[in-house]
Nucleic acid binder design. Structure first.
Lengths: 264, 264
DNA sequence: GATATCAAGTCCTATATAGGAATAAGGGAA
DNA sequence: TTCCCTTATTCCTATATAGGACTTGATATC
């Protein structure tokens, strides 16, 4: 008489065992996270990886395709597979950007740090970062967009991971894009975002800095930035006052990130 | 001496020939578009499709995976492959929704048509629909959200495709969600969206209808709806006045649409 | 009637293999 | 030098095949 098999909850993989192509993806992803392969670097060829991973070519290819989907690597016919660089989005603000009415893109050109502090306060960012984090680096900035108008930006970074930043001088941080900075210095590229918007009276500290009337309404735009494996790395809030010129905020939609025609 | 081969532009597929798995995807997609398989219906099994399409199993599977990625079909282990239904998003507003501060979702509950007309005017929607379309059904609606506040919505539909709607009575259209309506009656589900936002003074017609002060600022939220093959089917503009309660507009991000963990 | 077993249908994973197509680099001829 | 050809490398497509895993419904057993 054989042992009676355990009753397994239907719909779940037995024992949580993952598919091989998936384990390979994870392994490569880990290597990139750990900096074993740096952005821009070429990975070993498919067949080479297949040998290393003790898998067949097809399986490795599938793993790599899913990494392409995630935006972690890029593949080029005849050239190789490359780690998607910090700068790989070619200077494009991939996840959010300002746009003029016609469709022309407006670029943020000027960053001025208004204040840096380390705080413990909780807020909307707490739930984004999760229970484990309770210490944040909080940076206020004045950002000029395309030399035309100003917005007020505040960013929260988990202090545990980015403690070095707390010690940096304003001079060092002035003018940098945090997105690029985190990607390049901390190997923490923003892979995806979580965004919400609201129309509210701008808080006094903002109206004062931006020099707009007290109580002025504006858009409060919250952006949670996620890196590899959906790890939260930034929480940002941008206060946008109304402007004569029609400025549109474009949350880059899935349409653009992966056009239907290209999902293969 | 053999014929000298034509110089082909590098980086482009020679002659534009498409991969077989891709042609299969397209073919299945066409069948769904044409209503040969209707939402909720089960497609033939993989191996059956492989025979019909004269392809191997692996190729068909790859084609089907890409359709899953597009959100056109759903596959269930052991059950089959099904056309994603109009209602398949399970009543969820997949592409946009209102949210309260805590994260609770606010549902639109009440639609009241304010006016229907057929127009030829051009505007931001023109470029969305493309040059070919110059006749639109324009519908104004008053929408109540979660029994708490009102927003003003206007929607443009290409008259060529949805001419029947122009003839419908307000009574018929009152209270319906156009998203569901187009999906069910016209086999035109909204597969993806294109969204922009701006903070502007609300136009008089809106402040009047919503009964808020003239010149009040609000969010102007534009949503272009795309169906199969990125065909534009709706262009909608929602005017959201500020509210005491903090209402957040959540453009559903790619994070939610395809969590990194699930892209396999 | 309730429960366990079985079988068919379906999707899922994985392999081994073959040839095609894009890229880059090197060498030879005009 | 410039152009063409060849070659090596790499990714891309496709096939045939095998077995596993999940779901459903029918059948047998208690």
């Amino acid at each position: 008489m054989t042992q009676k098999p355990l009753r397994v909850v239907p719909g779940s993989k037995s024992g949580g065992a993952k598919a091989k192509h998936r384990r390979i993806s994870e392994e490569i992803l880990s290597a990139i996270e750990d900096g074993r392969w740096v952005p821009g670097e070429r990975l070993p060829a498919e067949d080479q990886l297949a040998i290393e991973m003790k898998a067949s070519l097809g399986t490795v290819q599938r793993a790599l395709r899913s990494l392409v989907q995630m935006g972690v690597v890029e593949r080029h016919h005849g050239r190789g597979t490359f780690v998607t660089g910090a700068r790989a989005q070619e200077g494009q603000l991939r996840h959010f950007r300002f746009m003029a009415e016609g469709g022309t893109q407006l670029l943020p050109v000027y960053f001025k740090i208004v204040g840096i502090e380390t705080v413990r306060e909780s807020g909307p960012w707490s739930s984004f970062f999760g229970e484990r984090e309770d210490n944040y680096i909080h940076i206020h900035r004045l950002v000029n967009v395309n030399d035309e108008f100003d917005v007020f930006s505040e960013i929260y970074l988990p202090a545990s991971r980015f403690s070095e930043i707390a010690g940096m001088s304003e001079a060092t941080l002035n003018g940098v894009s945090f997105r690029d900075f985190l990607a390049e210095r901390f190997n923490a590229p923003t892979i995806n975002t979580h965004q919400t918007m609201a129309c509210q009276p701008l808080p006094p500290r903002v109206t004062r800095t931006l020099n707009v009337p007290h109580g002025q309404y504006g858009i409060v735009w919250s952006i949670g930035g996620l890196s590899y494996r959906n790890t939260p790395i930034t929480w940002q809030r941008i206060f946008v006052p109304p402007s004569d010129r029609v400025i549109e905020i474009v949350p880059t939609s899935a349409v653009e990130q992966s056009p239907l025609q290209e999902v293969f």
